[in-house]
Design a protein around this nucleic acid. Structure first.
Lengths: 160, 160
DNA sequence: TTAATGTGGACCGATTTGGTACTGTTTAAG
DNA sequence: CTTAAACAGTACCAAATCGGTCCACATTAA
């Protein structure tokens, strides 16, 4: 799986819509109609992004949401982290980043160190992209995300 | 989050343990004791890996599980796919790989194409690793997983 | 004053997840 | 032939998570 939650997906779609004209202010209802995302979910997601400092909100009539910073200075990792917690493929990876209490298998676990590395690679690939990149055509993303790795020198299998 | 499920984590730990001496046959109980993973979960995971063709099983007394192929020819992506389904960060990514019925936002969604690319990057990074690599020291994994991407040319933000 | 709008929380139903139990079936060893 | 060890399959359960809804409230422009 490796799935993002739907809320995170919604968040990206909404932010992309907001970033289409930077500096503009859109109402939650407008965004819901433009993206076809159910309004209550839109509200919940936008509220979260505002708390995380990515959006500014104006209450009352004529209010709405707008980007707090230029889209090019909002990394994907920050959005994902705000909406569904730290990017960590394993619990123990998260623990080793935040605090100490690792898992109870720590003493016998021989793969933990590798997860840290793999997780870092994914984190870096996502961190190279910003919200502005999500509004750009696909080829730009292909380049930035690092799809051009050399195949491994001596691969016995090669299955996928 | 981006988490693997606990079962997948268990699977990797168990396979790594089995790969420590290739060709050996270990009993589910032995593996449970060696890895401290609860026995019922061990059984469930191993059975799944056998069905997927990564393990061979021998029933009856003196039975047990063994690797069906050399560890170096079992890619990480195959293990993950067997234990928790296809690697796809979004539902729509999975749909576009398997069949046609995309999500209902398809017509207005402007980020879908990008997910395909990002997903491919993650998939490739994991596909470059095999079970044998998980038994090797960490530096080898660092190299194979592609941690050495150049920083983007003009990064306005750089936050993480 | 009023209507539009965000804020915050409670709540619910569905699904997933991790774990358990039980009843087979196979096979080596005695 | 009997028995105990081991895998196979299924059903089930409790807890957590997720997506979604609703409501009472605070704020602000008109």
């Amino acid at each position: 799986m490796f799935r993002m939650s739907k809320m995170t997906d919604y968040g990206l779609v909404l932010l992309t819509e907001l970033a289409r004209e930077e500096g503009s202010t859109r109402t939650a209802r407008e965004l819901a109609e433009a993206t076809r995302v159910p309004l209550p979910s839109v509200s919940k997601v936008l509220k979260g992004l505002q708390t995380a400092g990515m959006l500014v909100s104006h209450r009352g009539a004529m209010g709405g949401y707008g980007l707090a910073r230029p889209a090019a200075s909002i990394p994907l990792t920050q959005i994902i982290t705000a909406l569904e917690g730290p990017v960590a493929i394993t619990e123990c990876v998260q623990h080793s980043e935040t605090g100490e209490p690792a898992c109870e298998l720590e003493s016998v676990c021989r793969v933990r160190g590798h997860w840290r590395v793999i997780n870092q690679a994914i984190h870096d690939a996502l961190g190279r992209l910003t919200l502005a990149d999500l509004c750009a055509p696909t080829p730009r993303v292909e380049r930035l995300v690092g799809l051009n790795m050399p195949p491994r020198s001596a691969s016995p299998g090669g299955l996928s």
